[in-house]
Amino acid sequence: MTTTVVLPSVPALGGLFARGAGLSLQRRVRSGPTTLPDVEYVVRGVRADASHLTAYQHLLGESASDRLPAGFVHVLAFPVATALMVRSDFPLALVGLVHVANRVTQLRPVLLSDVLDVRASAADLRPHRSGTQVDLVTEVSVDGTLAWRGVSTYLARGVFLAGSVDETSDPFVPPTPTGRWKLAGDTGRRYAAVSGDRNPIHLTALTAKAFGFPRAIAHGMYTASRALADVGAARGDAFDWSVEFVKPVLLPGTVTVRIAHDGDAFAFAGWDARSGKPHLTGSVTPLS
Rank of each mutant, 00 (worst) to 15 (best):
L112R: 01
D240W: 01
W241I: 00
P91G: 09
V243W: 00
A156H: 12
V284D: 01
D114P: 05
F211R: 09
P171Q: 10
H58V: 13
A55P: 04
A122W: 04
V159S: 14
G15Q: 12
R126S: 09
R157I: 08
S113K: 11
G14C: 03
R47K: 14
R108F: 01
T138Y: 03
L287Q: 14
S152I: 03
A267E: 02
L94R: 08
V43P: 05
A269G: 03
D135R: 10
T178D: 03
G131H: 11
G45Q: 10
G61M: 11
Y154C: 04
A162E: 14
K182S: 13
D186P: 04
A267C: 04
D170M: 11
V231W: 00
A216S: 15
G15N: 12
H261K: 13
V98H: 08
R149I: 02
A184E: 13
T54I: 08
S130F: 10
P174R: 08
R180Y: 04
F245G: 02
L155K: 09
R235W: 00
D197N: 13
G96K: 13
A55I: 06
V140F: 02
F72E: 01
W241C: 00
G158D: 09
E62W: 15
R103K: 12
F72N: 01
L7Q: 08
A192L: 09
A218P: 03
S288N: 12
R30K: 14
F78Y: 15
